[in-house]
């Protein structure tokens, strides 16, 4: 049975959890992922093979193993860290490995002539990356980074594994107290949609604006 009262009671409660936890985790996690992902992508290309190979393995390993496993392992291995901190770090690092793949594709889409022109002008590697390759590569990568950020946002409920009081955890508690889950979970779903849909639209607009 659907109860309107419970629905409206859940709204402020879950909105608070949404802003204080889900949004904070997503924003900080995205920042970590965007920066680290770029670091992985450049390092794998620039490091000597002896260092690049283990790094590539580590990045692949993280990408190919489930997020909840990382959350639990890191949470119990470093019990001095708060659950929230672990959540932000783990989700950020996890998604950095996806973003690294997007950056890699963006970098590889740059025609070899751009690298060759940079060599012919004797531009140092750092300048070639900063002034020539990345401005073009990131333009190609941005839409995909946006999609990963939205995916990360939708993965925040996994933080329930380490008891971070994010929105879905709170919705579950609320449901448990009132012996019905539908209303609270519906609120959570609507809040997710209200946040991710405009973001997706915005990303699409940005993508169009950035096209040459």
């Amino acid at each position: 049975m659907w109860e309107n009262e419970l629905f409206f009671e859940a709204v402020p409660l879950l909105l608070e959890a949404f802003i204080k936890v889900t949004l904070v985790v997503t924003v900080l996690g995205t920042l970590i992922a965007v920066v680290l992902g770029l670091v992985w992508a450049i390092a794998v290309r620039e490091l000597p093979p002896l260092l690049a190979a283990p790094l590539r393995f580590l990045v692949d390993f993280i990408r190919m193993t489930p997020l909840p496993v990382h959350l639990l392992v890191i949470y119990y291995a470093f019990n001095s860290l708060s659950a929230m901190t672990v959540g932000i770090l783990v989700i950020g690092v996890h998604y950095s490995t996806y973003m690294a793949e997007s950056y890699r594709a963006g970098i590889e889409s740059i025609r070899s002539g751009q690298w060759e022109a940079a060599t012919a002008l004797s531009l140092p590697a750092s300048r070639t990356w900063r002034a020539v390759i990345l401005p073009q590569a990131i333009r190609n990568t941005l839409p995909s980074l946006g999609n990963w950020a939205i995916a990360m946002f939708k993965d925040t409920p996994f933080l329930i594994f380490i008891s971070v009081p994010e929105m879905v955890t709170r919705a579950r508690e609320f449901g448990g107290q009132h012996f019905t889950y539908v209303e609270a979970m519906t609120v959570a779903g609507v809040l997710f949609l209200l946040a991710s849909y405009p973001t997706a639209v915005l990303m699409r607009k940005l993508e169009k604006k950035l096209a040459y």
């Binding site: 012919a120 002008l121 004797s122 531009l123 140092p124 002034a131």
Partner: peptide, 26 residues
């Protein structure tokens, strides 16, 4: 110096930025 078949100008820079990039940074 080299001039390429496919020009290989940097599309993210203006004409002037293309030309001054290396004199300034190299």
């Amino acid at each position: 110096g080299m001039v390429f078949q496919q020009f290989n100008l940097f599309p993210n820079m203006t004409v002037l930025q293309n030309i001054i990039e290396a004199p300034v940074h190299v």
